[in-house]
Nucleic acid binder design. Structure first.
Length: 281
DNA sequence: AATGAGATCAACCGCGTAATC
DNA sequence: CGATTACGCGGTTGATCTCAT
């Protein structure tokens, strides 16, 4: 037996939604919630399949959707999140309030992809496309690179936390440090959030490195004692991407660092990660 | 003004998977 | 526990818009 079709194709309307249909759908959901999408069209008096209704609602009619063009900050966030999450549009959309996965996907495919290509960056791997030199090897898979980025961010955050707790800094010093390096904490939080969790799930299957598996197996980072990673330089740019060394070969780091630095230099100031605060505060 | 190419984006399709029977 | 159903996601399509010629 195959799976049943999502809806009866005969007699159902397709194509662009009319204003009347929109009103019917909004009115119904306002009163009753969407409930079962499959039964919603009949109940709402719509000649559409449930799937179509769900799509129309989630991508267009939902009241919390922010319409209009993406700001430069939002675009940069999409690029940054794509470097970490890959084509997981729903996960990216979850971090950008008011934007839908469809919208972000379209933005990526129509604008950002081309923009990255035009400056010589492979939009899938986030690596320079013009590779030269004798030591170059084929780029790591996107998933490997995303894992490396996650892992390095996580390690840096852990290192900072462990340093802060072990150095017995004075309160004023501690506060200063925490404020200055706030972004690491956000990575820790993301790591412990749904996004991080889904990433760990993916990683469990995709990554065979014993070292990296060991660091993932116990994900209760707050209590775990780990060897402090070597932080080669101060600041988020250096330490974030130096961290890739821990998960991949040095050649790979050479490959990716230019792209990584470009993206990071492009990243707005200290409050970049404020978009995440809403999810954790 | 006509038209063709490229860009944009709403909507559809098919698959994976969680939930339910 | 396997079969079925419903949902959500990412990839793709196609109608419409914009702009250059």
């Amino acid at each position: 037996m195959g799976r049943a079709p999502c809806c009866e194709k005969t007699g159902l309307k397709r194509g662009p939604w009319t204003q009347e249909e929109d009103e019917l759908l909004v009115e119904y959901i306002k009163k009753n919630g969407h409930g079962s999408w499959r039964s919603l069209p009949k109940l709402a008096g719509l000649l559409r399949c449930g799937k179509s209704c769900r799509l129309r609602w989630t991508n267009y009619l939902r009241p919390d959707i922010k319409r209009g063009p993406f700001s430069p900050e939002e675009e940069k966030l999409v690029i940054q999140l794509h470097a970490i999450l890959g084509n997981r549009w729903a996960a990216i959309a979850a971090q950008i309030p008011g934007r839908t996965d469809n919208e972000i996907k379209n933005l990526w495919n129509t604008h950002l992809r081309k923009r990255l290509l035009s400056i010589g960056i492979d939009p899938q791997t986030h690596e320079p496309t013009a590779i030269s030199g004798p030591l170059k090897r084929p780029p790591a898979s996107p998933s490997t690179r995303h894992m490396a980025q996650w892992e390095s961010a996580r390690l840096e955050a852990e290192a900072r936390l462990s340093m802060e707790s072990s150095l017995l800094l004075t309160p004023s010093t501690t506060n200063k440090r925490i404020n200055n390096n706030n972004n690491s904490d956000y990575f820790l939080r993301i790591w412990n959030s749904e996004v991080g969790n889904s990433f760990r799930t993916m990683k469990k299957f995709a990554c065979s490195s014993p070292a990296s598996q060991a660091s993932v197996s116990g994900t209760t980072m707050e209590t775990e004692q780990k060897p402090e990673p070597e932080l080669k330089s101060e600041g988020k740019i250096g330490s974030f991407y130096n961290g890739i060394t821990h998960s991949s070969s040095s050649d790979e780091v050479e490959d990716s660092s230019d792209t990584a630095l470009q993206l990071f230099f492009d990243f707005p100031g200290q409050n970049d990660m404020s978009f995440l605060e809403a999810h954790f505060n």
